[in-house]
């Protein structure tokens, strides 16, 4: 399997360099990266699913909106999401089904509190293998 993402060094926050063979996969991998930073996803079995829909002006804004929508769902529904299926995707809108497991009372899978995904320096780049983007998460 190809690498979904890697962390890069940022003094105060957490930077993640995300890869995808196409834009849809880039978005799904960005969501995975964020939750992989938030929680220990190893062996986490999804027991619940939710539907989400987000809009934005262009792919970069849509990407931040998508991640922030997922954070909102994580914090308010107390669910760790680990699987993301985007089924409708355009430059202005995406619809997805997201799967995860409730955080649970002892919160033992949680690692890092991400406050938000930022727009800082965000640029989706075309590469030989597909697409790449660097995102800075405020932690």
């Amino acid at each position: 399997m190809t690498k979904k993402y890697e962390q890069f060094s940022h003094t105060a926050d957490i930077g993640a360099r995300i890869y995808g063979k196409d834009l849809k996969e880039l978005f799904e991998n960005a969501a995975f990266a964020m939750f992989d930073i938030i929680a220990d996803l190893e062996g986490l079995e999804a027991t619940v699913a939710r539907a989400v829909e987000v809009e934005g002006e262009g792919y970069e804004e849509l990407l931040v909106s998508w991640l922030d929508e997922l954070l909102y769902n994580f914090y308010t529904k107390s669910i760790i999401f680990s699987k993301f299926e985007i089924w409708e995707f355009s430059e202005k809108k995406l619809k997805a089904k997201i799967y995860g497991r409730p955080v649970g009372v002892n919160r033992n899978r949680l690692k890092t509190e991400i406050k938000a995904a930022t727009y800082s320096g965000l640029e989706i780049k075309k590469t030989a293998e597909g697409y790449q983007v660097e995102i800075i998460f405020d932690v």
Binding site: E57, E60, V64, Y119, S120
Partner: peptide
């Protein structure tokens, strides 16, 4: 508000080097 303010940039003719 960070998201909303992205749209204020063109509305008020403001140019900044970082969207944040």
């Amino acid at each position: 508000y960070s998201k909303d303010f992205l749209h204020c940039l063109s509305k008020y003719g403001i140019s900044v080097p970082d969207r944040q």
